[in-house]
Design a protein around this nucleic acid. Sequence first.
DNA 1: CCACCTCGAGTTCA
DNA 2: CTCGAGGTGG
Length: 676
Amino acid sequence: MAGQVGVEDVQDVRERIERLREQIEYHNYRYHTLDAPEITDAEYDALFQELLHLEREHPELASPDSPTQRVGGAALEGFAEVTHRIPMLSLGNAFTPEQLRAWHARAVSLLDREVEEFTLEPKIDGLAVSLLYENGRLFVGATRGDGVHGEDITPNVRTIRTVPLTIKGAPSRLEVRGEVYLPKAAFEQINNERAVQGLPLYLNPRNTAAGSLRQLDSRITGQRPLAFFAYAIGLWEGAPLPQTQWEMLEQLSAFGFKTNPRNSLVHGIDELVERCLSWEHDRDRLEYEIDGVVAKINGRQLQEELGSVGREPRWAIAYKFPPVQATTMLRDIGINVGRTGSLNPFAILEPVKLAGVVIKLASLHNEEDIHRKDIRIGDTVVIQRAGEVIPQVIGPVVSKRTGAEREFAMPTTCPSCGSPVVKPEGEAMTRCTNDETCPAQQFEGLVHFVSRGAMDIQGVGEKLAAVLIQAKLVVDPGDLYSLEKEQLVGLDRMGEKSAENVLASIEGSKTRPFSRVINALGIRHVGERTAEILADRFGSMDRLLAASAEELTETDSVGPIIGRSVYEFLHTPRNLRIIAKLRAAGVNMEQHHVERGDLPLAGTLWVFTGRLERWTRGEAEARVKELGASIGDSVTKRTTHVVVGADPGSKAQRAQQLKLSVLDEDEFERIAGLPS
DNA sequence: CCACCTCGAGTTCA
DNA sequence: CTCGAGGTGG
């Protein structure tokens, strides 16, 4: 410290500190609330550092309103109770458009006049909080609690950047209500970090936000990028209240709060219903989770006339979406053996209804995933069925444990054939060592052989494949070609006609392109793509069989692992016997060369997303392929055309980001021609 | 050696 | 659709 400081100097410092606080809060507001920063991060940091420095030199000038206090302070012993002067009401729910209309009809009949104007606000899945400002300064922040009594979490809410610490032009007392939430991206990042550190994962953004807000140590809260949307005013003393909900939202913005930019004003019940339904469709596109939308009758006069029933106002209603998560009991963990011999655990669940379907099974990826999430048999688990259709087990509800749960252990022998299993160091998958006679692998191998991307044999699916193996008519895919009608008739409700159809499909598969034949063999690390590359490079089965391991490895996109895998496959007696059977049956064994260069779409790479009206995905892909194009399944820099149909996935967004030309169905047809 | 891009494999329910 | 893992290029 530099000796005695004069009175004038202190005055200067005080002014400088005040000025810095104002500037920093202003830029905070520009950045977090308006998403429109005026200065660079470095300039902001410089201001912040200067303020920190001055406050440290002059502790007597410290203030809880200072932006430096947003990082949080010392831990508390516990939370004090706060009583809400005006109770925080809950909302009635509507789950269907009919219930929404019934709510409206009731309001109309009670008021005896038409109700036309509503606000519609996304219902963020977060935590309701109350912020009390006295003379423009944040005084108390509290959780909703039971609506009457909440907890004092003032130090924690101070750390939220979108919560103003001071407001200008406010009435003497003002209580603002809103939702604290954690954006999806931040939730994912926190979980990624926890995964790296081997910590148990959080289940969803809401729980994480709740946990963060109820930290006794506000420094931890300060590290979580929580955000706040204001949606209502509770207490308001010293000025007249705005006359409509919409004006109230505008007033909140004027005070410096962030209100949801997706809030809207809606006219008429028909439009309201329509907008609720479209929100349900668009919910996954938001950067935060919502569990519904809230409709409020706009006029305050009408609101007051309608009043409340119990804890629920009659002038507002939450239109709730079907939940995307549910909890249920994990009864057991089963094991599937895949085509490549991988042992894949799956969850056997107490059936539970979620998003309109009853879920009994869910995938569990691999052993490490189960242990990382600390999932045990008998646990109550959270399952999710979000943007994807496939249900996932997110994690256990640890608080529901009884002690009777069992830890999962991967079996040491294959559940299908009893052979020992191996889990190579550093790999995630456990594998069965018996790739010759393991029934599960035989079965999956046959199913792969007949599948669409391989030999495409219609009429032979999982059902018939199982029957054929069971009856010992087929041991490997080569046996399909020596099946006779008499052998099929009588199997599993198979009549003459079906048997003939099956045989015709098998016959038809003999002319599949050579690349499909390679793919059908089921060589490890060789799929549709690599099979095409190998077919192009070697041209025929004979040349492929004659290729040395080095020649294989020198092929583009084929490295040592794939090369070795192909070489070993082609030098295993069992596989050579299969190839011999296929050849004897007349299956195509060479590449019929196509002059790729002069086709109109040569060198283009197409990606399809969404549903087309007049084409199936497969037809459309086949068409552009005939014209020389390649097909990609994710949008990358190399993609040249993106065709977007109805209900597109994330690919459409990515295409826009990369500024690629996006085609609709009509434009697609102008290039590719009409459907045949 | 690492970061990025691709590919392969497995995945639910009706 | 998502994850794991192979290939490639810096």
